[in-house]
Design a protein around this nucleic acid. Structure first.
Lengths: 195, 195
DNA sequence: TTTGTACATGTACTTTTGTACATCATGACA
DNA sequence: TGTCATGATGTACAAAAGTACATGTACAAA
């Protein structure tokens, strides 16, 4: 019968929504998408259950928003990676990528994003964007085919980092990057249209 | 009140358990691990709900058994891949791997397995075994470091295949394999122990 | 200070899912 | 052919999660 006695906190819709997205992101990266429930988010973000249902039209909406938030997070981290001179100095790029692989949050966020995209068609474009952006950042330095190869490899390395305690070593990354940068394109480097 | 009237089918514990595992595997590959419920398995395998709870002690047990079954399935498919001559003739190995990537069931099974392993510690060893086996099959031909690099790349390619309609082209795979086979080891090919 | 609206809260209800179990058929064996 | 243990079935109950909503508070405007 009695409802809503205990004193609501200050009104801050944006901050509140953000707090819930952060909480949801943490739940996903720590326990997987299956663990994402209204109640878990409410507890973690320290908001009421009602808030989680009011700011998101459904649990699917909440999940999608959370994954979108995670995508933005790792995208920002990706933006800090310095690919300059990757062709001539692969050690540096490898160290940069190794830094990403040591960030468990980023690693698990990436895995959750990609795995969700493989399952849910609605999230596929979001997952693909991650790949595309990675390739986009790399292509100017080494060409499209090589950038794609490294992007694919790096997704594999991210998976590996999520499964093992330790990510691949800097040396291993360096060797692979060096080899793929020097790789000739699939057929020719520049694409050709034929009749 | 009334229970169990409608005529039970022939008794076949092994076949029944197998039918449920197949159904569970299909559900996982088609709709993701989150869609795996007792009722979904019962409907797909055309057995009673009671059977799904009798053959598996809990839903976690069922999920683990299903993923184990999927792991065995893709392991068998992996065993059919011919890596012979990969060092001198990468086109053939690329074609073999491309064949795997065109099998949507195998691709999604692999993704589900790896993603589950990244989430659930209990399933981690199962997921790691897939990687290890891949490397194990490849190492005799090209050495450990190169085998690991290709295995990591191939996991990325599998993810890619699960996200895009079309997997990477044979040509793209060939180019990468050629580059990674020729890759020098991280430091030296043979490991050294130092004092 | 008063007042009204948007926001926050907790409860209640519904649906989904996991699990236990009473009942009955099946097929092998006596 | 009769009997019995195994196995298969459907229902019932419990727990968990999604969703709706009535209530009450905070803040800003009048």
């Amino acid at each position: 019968m009695s409802t809503a006695n205990p004193a609501p906190r200050r009104r801050d819709p944006e901050g509140r929504r953000r707090a819930m997205l952060i909480a949801a992101g943490e739940i996903i990266t720590e326990a997987g998408t299956a663990a994402l429930t209204h109640r878990a988010v409410a507890a973690r973000a320290e908001v009421s259950l009602g808030s989680t249902t009011k700011y998101f039209s459904s649990i699917d909406d909440l999940r999608e928003a959370a994954l979108q938030y995670l995508a933005q997070e790792i995208d920002q981290e990706l933006a800090t990676i310095d690919f300059a001179g990757i062709a001539t100095n692969p050690e540096h790029a490898a160290a940069e990528l190794h830094r990403f692989l040591c960030d468990r949050h980023a690693v698990h966020a990436t895995i959750a994003l990609l795995a969700s995209g493989a399952t849910d068609p609605q999230l596929r474009s979001l997952a693909r964007r991650w790949d595309d952006r990675f390739i986009e950042l790399l292509t100017p330095h080494i060409g499209h085919a090589q950038a794609t190869a490294i992007a694919v490899y790096f997704n594999g390395a991210t998976l590996h980092a999520g499964l093992d305690e330790e990510p691949l070593s800097r040396d291993a990354l360096t060797a692979v990057i060096r080899a793929l940068v020097a790789m000739p394109g699939p057929v020719t480097t520049t694409q050709e249209t034929n009749p």
